[in-house]
Each structure stands twice: as C-alpha cells, then as structure tokens.
Amino acid sequence: MYNILICDDEKDIVKALKIYLFNEEYNLFEANDGREAVNLAKKHEFHVILMDVMMPHMDGISALAEIRKTSNVPIIMLSAKSEDTDKILGLNVGADDYVTKPFNPVEVLARVKSQLRRYTQLGSLTTSDDVIVIGSIQLDDKEKKVRVDQNEVSLTPTEYEILKLLMMNPNRVYSPKQIYEQVWDDCGFASENTVAVHIRHLREKVEINPSEPRFLKVVWGQGYKLERN
C-alpha cells in the first residue's frame, strides 16, 4: 500500500483525481490547502504528494519547501501556472515533477506511477558499468535492454543505438548528422531526416508525454540531447 496525498483547494479536482487514482494499492489522502498538507505530511508517511500551487492559507510552493525540510517524498506539482519561470521555481524548490492544468488524467497517473517506482525501488538498482541510468531511463548494455520506470521498452536496434549514444554523453547536443555518422557508421549525406524520424519514435517510447519530453529533448535548429538534471 502506498500513501498518496492529493492537495488542491478545488474539491472537484481532488475528487476526480481520486477517481482516477483509485486503486487497491493506493491509500489516498486529501488536503485542501498547503497548511493542511504540511500537517498531514507530519502525521503520515506519504509515498507521493500531488500539490496545487495556488491555494489559500499556504500556497503550494511554501508547503513544498516546508515538507522538503523533513522528507524527500516525491512531490508532483499540479498548477494552472504554465510559465517556464513557474516550472523552474517549483523544480528548484524541490518538486520532482510539474504538471500543468488542465492536465490529462492518464498522464498524471503515469507520472505518479513513475515517481512511486523511482522512490520505492531505488535501492534495488543493480549498478554495474554496463548499466546507464538517467532519470527514469535505464539502459543495460549487456542485456541490450532499456527500461523506463522499471518497465521494459522494446526498441529497434537503431533506436537502441541512438539512445545509447545520447545516454553515454548526457546533456551533449548531437546534430542529426553526427548521430547518423555514429550510429549508421556511414557518412550522413541527406540522411538527417531518417534520424529525426527515429528520434521521434524513440521519444514516443521512452517519454510519458512525447510532446513535452522530460529527458530526450529536441534542441531546435541544433540537434538532440538527453538531459540529466
């Protein structure tokens, strides 16, 4: 059983989230403002907290900071504030994820699951030289397998090679031409389009929301990179 706290001043949203998250494995708690959430977090041990930002009494960011003082529980921010600066603020204060309203319930569900796995199964990771872990993506070069949030993802050999290249040098931007030359081991003449298509497929497989990727990012006009924050 995992304890999940849902904190939002809009009771209907809490209710809807409860319906979506209703599961035998989850024990759902509810809070309607930041103070309540902080108090609950002191009493119980939560495995994931979903937190709204704009709330009465104590806003989500303050509550986040308060909870972070005592706990490293995964906290997913849910907010109508969709500015980059808001996201950066939330993540910097200590949020693990940031989902903007109006959200896709399925996406929220996936993210909750992802955070739960990361939080609870972190210790069981087999760390060897052949395993590269970036965020929730885990690449085992010996078994030639890729797992995202512990779930195995089936990749084509080309996709695997591209992901491996990017994961070996995280944060480095590779141009499509470079990727082609390294993966295909050929001179990339007018083959950049192929790379772009492969990258998109790859993104669809490893990202929860492909149009808003967390790890496999597109640097427009320059190339692709695997971001490790």
Binding site: P176, K177, R200, W220
Partner: peptide, 11 residues
C-alpha cells in the same frame, strides 16, 4: 538541422 527535425516530427 531544423528542417530535418521538422520532417522527423511531422512526417
């Protein structure tokens, strides 16, 4: 690069 990325995204 930008053009190939667009191609990849929208193909």
């Amino acid at each position: 690069v930008l053009l190939s990325q667009i191609y990849g995204e929208y193909d």
